[in-house]
Amino acid sequence: MTDALTPADGARVWTLPNLLSGLRLLGVPLFLYLVLGPEADAAALAVLVVSGVTDFLDGYLARRLDQQSALGQVLDPVADRLYILAVVVGLAMRDVIPWWLAVSLPLRDALMWGLVPLLRTRGYSSLPVHFLGKAATFNLLYAFPLLLLGDGDGTVATLAQVFGWAFAFWGVGLYWWAGILYAWQVRRLLQTMPRLPASATG
């Protein structure tokens, strides 16, 4: 949902896409409870599947129903990042994935947050989401359910682990590639756009 918004679009709150994004956010603590509490992996897997479906639907419906909103442009990426953070922490604490993987993704997000003050000096709060970032999120949201499913024995678990790690490696690589590209775009913006007065950025 990166199209330009009209003032009326920006004021929208109670839209179907926003409700779906809110539903996804409610699933974050539920997933952590299921994985770390009763270790109900089947239910946790269902939460991830629902999250993936609603991730697709909120963007599709926003365009289809012409219900883009400023709130939606914030909720969608925030929900993506919170899910990724919750999943990597939960799976690392269960020893399903190594801690280097769990740390590498939030570290990239910390880099992105560190660029926000620089953007604000040029009058921006963010830049449009790049295709690489969406592709990375797509890979990661497929990888983690498969890795969770692979935390067991048997042929299905083995296949899930193989495909899960394939998606995970691609996802991590694309996630960092998108972050580096974003940082490069910020650098170009700082070189080409005049700095705003301090009163305008404060």
Rank of each mutant, 00 (worst) to 15 (best):
Thr2Ser: 13
Ala4Asp: 14
Leu5Trp: 12
Asp9Val: 10
Gly10Ile: 01
Gly10Ser: 14
Trp14Lys: 02
Trp14Thr: 08
Trp14Tyr: 06
Thr15Gln: 05
Ser21Phe: 03
Leu23Pro: 06
Arg24Tyr: 00
Leu25Pro: 00
Val28Ser: 04
Pro29Leu: 00
Phe31Lys: 00
Leu32Ala: 15
Tyr33Ile: 00
Val35Gly: 06
Val35Phe: 03
Gly37Thr: 01
Gly37Glu: 02
Ala40Lys: 05
Ala42Asn: 09
Ala43Trp: 03
Ala43Arg: 02
Ala44Phe: 09
Ala46Trp: 10
Leu48Tyr: 05
Val50Asn: 07
Val53Tyr: 01
Val53Lys: 02
Val53Leu: 12
Asp55Val: 02
Asp55Asn: 07
Leu57Thr: 02
Asp58Leu: 01
Asp58Met: 00
Gly59Tyr: 03
Leu61Phe: 12
Arg64Cys: 07
Arg64Leu: 13
Leu65Gly: 08
Asp66Thr: 06
Ser69Arg: 08
Ala70Lys: 09
Leu71Asn: 06
Leu71Thr: 01
Leu71Ala: 11
Val74His: 10
Asp76Leu: 05
Pro77Glu: 04
Val78Thr: 13
Ala79Lys: 00
Asp80Met: 03
Leu82Arg: 02
Ile84Gln: 14
Val87Trp: 03
Val89Pro: 03
Arg94Lys: 11
Val96Thr: 11
Val96Tyr: 07
Pro98Leu: 06
Trp99Ala: 10
Trp100Gln: 11
Trp100His: 07
Ala102His: 02
Ser104Asn: 02
Leu107Tyr: 06
Leu107Phe: 11
Asp109Pro: 05
Met112Ser: 11
Trp113Ile: 14
Gly114Glu: 12
Val116Met: 13
Val116Glu: 12
Leu118Ser: 14
Arg120Phe: 08
Thr121Cys: 11
Ser125Gln: 13
Ser126Thr: 14
Ser126Met: 09
Pro128Ser: 11
Val129Phe: 08
Val129Ile: 15
His130Pro: 04
His130Thr: 14
Gly133Ser: 13
Ala135Asn: 04
Ala135Lys: 01
Ala135Ile: 05
Phe138Thr: 11
Asn139Glu: 12
Pro145Asn: 04
Leu146Phe: 12
Leu147Gly: 07
Leu148Gly: 10
Asp151Lys: 09
Asp151Tyr: 09
Gly152Val: 11
Gly152Leu: 11
Gly152Phe: 09
Gly152Lys: 14
Gly152Cys: 08
Thr155Trp: 09
Val156Thr: 14
Ala157Arg: 12
Ala157Ser: 14
Leu159Gln: 10
Leu159Ser: 05
Gln161Gly: 15
Ala166Cys: 12
Ala166Val: 14
Ala168Asn: 01
Ala168His: 07
Trp170Arg: 09
Val172Asp: 01
Tyr175Pro: 07
Trp177Leu: 15
Ala178His: 06
Gly179Gln: 10
Leu181Gln: 07
Tyr182Ile: 00
Gln185Met: 13
Val186Pro: 07
Arg187Trp: 15
Leu189Thr: 08
Leu190Ser: 03
Arg195Cys: 08
Pro197Cys: 04
Ala198Tyr: 09
Ser199Glu: 14
Gly202Met: 13
Gly202Pro: 04
